[in-house]
Design a protein around this nucleic acid. Structure first.
Length: 481
RNA sequence: CGGGGCAUAGCGCAGUUUGGUAGCGUGCUUGGUUCGGGACCAAGAGGCCGCAGGUUCAAAUCCUGUUGCCCCGACCA
């Protein structure tokens, strides 16, 4: 990457080795994913970016339904008093809550806040809806927007308003709630790895990093091209904290009134940022085939010539039965320009139809992941393309995994950890005693945080590299977005 | 919230030091020739110089204030 020839092709994008932040900004703007909005901290998600979100929604929502969940919608505005019911939750979110104080010219009797997350509203409703053990479990998800008034923002990664899904469930037992929490984390893993081609590490958050109001928070962490970690989805076991504060009680089989056990889990448009920084390169985006807004782009070559355009349209309508296809028949751009344009937008497969192809009853194809150019016979085109898209998915996953492995270090030497975080950021696998003091020290001295206590624990040593006391857990640490 | 930068045509920038008719590249429009890795020629359209005050005969340019954005930290999905 980064050779002269390539740079000649991609004039608009700053190479990622030169300035990763600028690369990211260039890519999202130049590919028409987003635009900055005239509201502080907010972004406009343009059709191409929104198409990615629709793809994510499609593959994720299907899995929510398959695991028994239904969608619903709750209000955007929540009365102030709700927020104060759960103390940890209030403390966690109050600093970034946006308040609504007036209706027209009249001041509201009770201030409303715009949801930064909907536990308080949803639990309030659940307390009405749950009366009997027969009402359980409650398995509801909502797709919506939330607002967190952040100090600094970046498109997709952190914006004041963002789109997400939040699942909220109530169960009769602690075991069931725990099972649900892990089940949904697994759903997230499947979406990340099997749909977005983004390898993730699964594990539990430390006390410091867990969700405000949760007993346990589980996370999936992805590795970006610059060695920083991205929290790509979280699933919380809320215990009975919210059930008690919001009075979610049911009469059990044994005629005893009991509190429910609740969970919540969420992923957001941040995943789009993850896709960009996991797969993108100096030519621009690289879209995972299964959620790519356009999977195949067809470019007619020399299409003023007899039959070319007709053939291109014919192929398009055939492929459109199976794939998301676009035909670029704009005559105002040269073929070379279009090659670069669609590569920048990350369309997984490009098909060229020119006089030579028609003569040979074939199409010319170029893969975005390998840039490999080859021909495909017209017979069996659909089947072959399906095969290639699957292969592109697998290749992208493997490349991302390789990147993560190359940037994952194992050490129990604190000096080494400091050096790595300074010089070659990535994941560091190490041990930890479990104390908050060591966690704070790590953050302060290296700017890195404990990303998770992975499910797959290994014994790397007996002592905590930060304090020298007995090590209790294996952890992954990294600088994070 | 600290530190730094920027705001002039859709986008990227020059012009500001030393006040005096608003510039360049690209993109856009029209016509023509091109088309298998960012084509070419010709003719056009497009700007209260972020916003509000001030100084001046005269302000993109000087002074006050204000808003927004970007980058780096701290805080957070």
């Amino acid at each position: 990457m980064g050779n002269k020839k390539e740079q000649d092709f991609v004039k608009e994008i700053t190479p990622m080795e030169e300035d990763f932040s600028q690369w990211y900004t260039d890519v999202i703007l130049k590919t028409d994913m987003v635009d900055y909005a005239p509201v502080k901290g907010c972004m406009v998600i343009k059709p191409y970016g929104y198409g990615v979100w629709e793809g994510i929604q499609r593959v994720m929502d299907r899995r929510f339904k398959e695991t028994g969940h239904k969608n619903a919608y709750f209000p955007l505005l929540i009365p102030e008093s709700f927020l104060k019911k759960e103390a940890d939750h209030f403390e966690g979110f109050a600093p970034e809550v946006l308040w609504v104080t007036h209706g027209g010219n009249e001041e509201l009797a009770e201030r409303l806040f715009i949801r930064p997350t909907s536990e308080t509203m949803i639990c309030t409703m659940y307390s009405k809806w749950v009366q009997s053990y027969r009402d359980l479990p409650v398995l509801i998800n909502q797709w919506c927007n939330v607002i967190r008034w952040e100090k600094t923002t970046r498109p997709f990664l952190r914006t004041a308003e963002f789109l997400w899904q939040e699942g909220h469930t109530v169960h009769a037992t602690e075991e069931e709630a725990q099972e649900e929490t892990l089940k949904m984390l697994e759903v997230y893993r499947q979406v990340a790895e099997d749909e977005l081609a983004m390898p993730v590490l699964l594990g539990q958050k430390s006390e410091k990093e867990k969700f405000a109001g949760a007993n346990k928070t589980y996370t999936m962490e992805a590795m970006m091209h610059d060695g920083k970690a991205l929290q790509a989805g979280t699933s919380h076991n809320l215990g009975q904290n919210f059930a008690k504060m919001f009075d979610i009680q049911y009469l059990d089989r044994d005629s005893v009134l009991k509190y429910g056990w609740s969970t919540s889990w969420g992923t957001s448009t941040r995943l789009i940022g993850g896709i960009i920084m996991t797969h993108g390169d100096n030519r621009g985006l690289m879209m995972p085939p299964r959620i790519a807004p356009t999977q195949v782009v067809i470019l007619p070559i020399a299409f003023h010539k007899e039959g070319v355009l007709d053939k291109a349209f014919e192929i398009k309508s055939e492929l459109a039965k199976t794939f998301r296809v676009e035909l670029d028949d704009r005559d105002s751009y040269s073929a070379g320009w279009k090659f670069n344009h669609w590569e920048m937008k990350g369309v997984p497969l490009r098909l060229e139809i020119g006089p030579k192809d028609i003569e040979n009853n074939q199409v010319t194809a170029v893969r975005r992941d390998t840039l490999e150019k080859f021909t495909i016979p017209m017979d069996g085109l659909t089947e072959k393309i399906a095969e290639i898209l699957d292969d592109i998915h697998q290749t992208m996953f493997n490349m991302a995994l390789k990147n993560r492995e190359e940037k994952t270090y194992t050490t129990t030497d604190y000096e080494e950890i400091k050096r790595i975080m300074k010089e070659t950021p990535g994941f560091v696998k190490t041990m930890w005693c479990g104390s908050r003091e060591c966690e704070d020290k790590l953050k302060e001295e290296t700017a890195a945080t404990i990303r998770c206590l992975p499910f797959e624990q290994e014994h790397l040593g007996d002592t905590c590299p930060f304090c020298g006391k007995k090590a209790e857990h294996m952890i992954y640490i990294a600088k994070a977005y």
